[in-house]
Amino acid sequence: MLGMVGRAAEGFYQVCRGLWTVFKHSGRPPTTKEFPDVMPELPGAFRGRLALAVNPETGEHLCISCRQCERVCPDKCIDITAHKSPQTGKLELIDFKIDHGLCMFCGLCTEVCPTSCIINTSDFEMSEYSRGALIYDLKRLTLSQEESAYYFAKKDLPPPKPKAKPAPKPEAAGDAGESLAQQPSDVSQQPGPKAEE
């Protein structure tokens, strides 16, 4: 009986303490950021709308039509049209479609891309009135030179080499989260050199 009373008192005390703790929080300034007025500061690794970067210096398109992103995408929302150019005998990009209605922003495509062409931007406001409008084509996907420069800097990616000789795979980026995420795909792509490192 006494034990029960003691436990009841203890419970009552704990509940009161909880209430007081919560009540004290009303004296703290709110952490709310009012979105349309105050844009959030997003980290470089934020996985927003997909885009294709160009070389910030020369402005040439970075995609080499290797179709790795198309293959790795779990949702199969990337659709690449390319052909072998009759002049140079190299692959030439004709169209690049991403269905953002299907994409789950997993970022796998950006990790496998050998030229850091396809990247996740920090843009997340992409509401549209129809599903068709969510399928972005090459024109809508390709970033301008300035935007590319901005994202290369923000994501801390190594600047791409000119296209003449295919750019080497970018090394793991500066921030820890990205490099961790990149590890497995790197291993699967190039087991040899990775193992040697």
């Binding site: 929080h25 709110p30 952490t31 009012e34």
Partner: peptide, 12 residues
Amino acid sequence: LLALFTVRKGPN
């Protein structure tokens, strides 16, 4: 009030 207690702003 819930906003106050959870350090938010609430409908405004």
